[in-house]
Design a protein around this nucleic acid. Structure first.
Lengths: 320, 320
DNA sequence: GCGGTCGTAGAATATATATACAGAAACCCA
DNA sequence: TGGGTTTCTGTATATATATTCTACGACCGC
């Protein structure tokens, strides 16, 4: 369907008759002198064109007790427990978490702030896809918290997600279009020296107001490939041998949530743990059984003050 | 459907599966082990419970040329032209206008302000019914711009509309629960003297930031009855004999939009024209052929700086 | 100007959803 | 405890909606 003015007009008209007035398609078709099939198609187009928006508002407090317990136990500002629609489906879970995170993020007042965004995180990309903000904000900057990881396809998705988030909240995007993991500190320095945009982004990390952080395991899972702008098997093994059970934006944490310091830190182009800690709000969005230990480390170390996770992970976190 | 926690949980779950994931009802029913009929019913309940919200966003600029012409011709800050779904239906038009006004109103930043609200206006009541604000605002007050008009039923509706608007934007409501039109200035003074709430509301009218004003004809139309907290036939005739073609919150205007001053002014409990003029934003929501002259008077006199009206009225306003 | 291709329309129909109905469970009050 | 009442459920089916299919007109390239 072309999206010119006239077709938008008729789509809107039909959509209002159908959704706002509650008329049946046959009524509309006879009133407008078109076929019912056309009305049906116009309605699909209107959804396509985002003229009709259907949102499912997840009522607060469906899991209020769990959330309060999490907040109390780990000193969180806010905990949100999301019910996964399908426990076996990892990507579905990420969407569910991202949707919930979008609602929570949209409720934050943004004004002259710097928002850190982990664009490689699946659930956070889902956040940016879901977010629908009608309101313009003040001078806000969105800065990527970590360079690229994985294949070129993921770089594109990351860029799009960041841009989209920035667009939605009327912010400026600061990209970190560089490898997230490099082979040596020297390469890292060379990259930083060469590119002013990257320096700008890295500078912005010193003054984060809100951070949307990614939480991950110490494993390599598809579509990530060892060494593809990413740590190798050996490097992960090294981190684990030092006690790491998870990582926050590729900064390793042990079971207690304490930083696992190593030479690996110098290979990462992204936010450091002290920079992260300085952010006023640190929002972690992660769930699923594989990430359990990592999530636990992140909350134990207070690397996030807002956690959005799934029911099962929430229960496991409290089960001890 | 009871709205306890468990039923809300299942409603939300099904609604997410259906609307966010795009699953069919039969899929969901087999997955959850319930009948398709139940899924259908749960989805209805979810809409009922406002867990599923469907909004039709009217794209900007469908009538951009008209709107720009209106703005230029009458010196308006903003003009919005709404396409009526059914030209013959007055109440439908009011809903259409109210919906549009809700969108526009929601886009305004509210912060420590006083919002004047004309609670007897059908289109503005429709605004308050439509408005869905997720965001909490600062210390905002909503004050009624006019006392009651018409029968007790309308008073209830007016109160509800005002309360609802206040709730939606997290504001305090100042009610003007007194007759909008009294028989004599003495009665008016007596009422004001007696009731502190009314004095508080009237005081607030001196400092309006945003006014949602009602525009009306010089006729009596149902459900209004002459003299029922309202002007009589004779009083309207008097106003008309002095040149009035319409009124803004029961303050009469002539064809040029100039105030028609008379003894009638002292019988009205509500915002005065000077008070109205002092408001930073004055939003008028009115349309339909019967109100044409009144709308024209209001824009000519610049009693509104934002006009939301229907296509036909817009064309007529520009036709001269 | 003549096929070819594309996009769009409506009629017919397949599919999906809502509802009427009837049975079962829960509830209430005597 | 037992009938009356209400509420909930699933089955069967009516109704509403989406899609298939075919036809028609617009827009090419030759």
């Amino acid at each position: 369907m072309a999206t010119n003015l006239e077709s938008r007009r008729i789509m809107t008209k039909v959509a209002r008759m159908y959704h706002s007035r509650g008329m049946r398609q046959t009524e509309i078709s006879s009133l407008l002198g078109i076929s019912q099939a056309r009305v049906s198609r116009l309605l699909s187009s209107a959804e396509e064109a985002n003229i009709v928006r259907t949102v499912v508002v997840i009522p607060d407090g469906l899991h209020a007790e769990l959330e309060e317990s999490l907040e109390a136990r780990f000193g969180l500002t806010q905990a949100h427990v999301v019910e996964a629609l399908d426990d076996s489906d990892e990507s579905g879970l990420n969407r569910d978490l991202g949707d919930a995170a979008a609602t929570i993020f949209a409720a934050l007042t943004l004004d002259e702030q710097t928002v850190g965004f982990t664009s490689w995180s699946a659930s956070l990309r889902s956040l940016s896809a879901t977010l629908e903000s009608a309101r313009q904000t003040g001078r806000v900057r969105v800065v990527e918290l970590l360079g690229d990881v994985g294949p070129p396809r993921m770089q594109h998705e990351a860029t799009r997600a960041t841009q989209r988030l920035a667009d939605q909240i009327g912010a400026t995007a600061l990209f970190l279009r560089a490898p997230g993991v490099v082979a040596s500190p020297a390469i890292r320095d060379a990259i930083v020296e060469q590119d002013a945009h990257i320096r700008e982004a890295l500078d912005a990390l010193d003054n984060l107001d809100i951070a949307l952080v990614g939480i991950g395991t110490c494993e390599i899972h598809l579509p990530l490939v060892p060494g593809d702008n990413f740590f190798s098997e050996e490097q992960f093994a090294l981190a684990k041998s030092l006690g790491a059970v998870g990582q926050v934006n590729l900064r390793f944490l042990d079971a207690e949530g304490k930083p696992v310091v190593s030479e690996l830190d110098d290979l990462v182009l992204g936010v450091t743990l002290p920079q992260l800690r300085a952010a006023r709000r640190r929002i972690g969005v992660a769930g699923g059984s594989s990430k359990f230990e990592a999530v636990r480390a992140a909350v134990r170390g207070a690397w996030v003050d807002t956690l959005i996770t799934d029911l099962r992970t929430a229960e496991r976190l409290l089960a001890e």
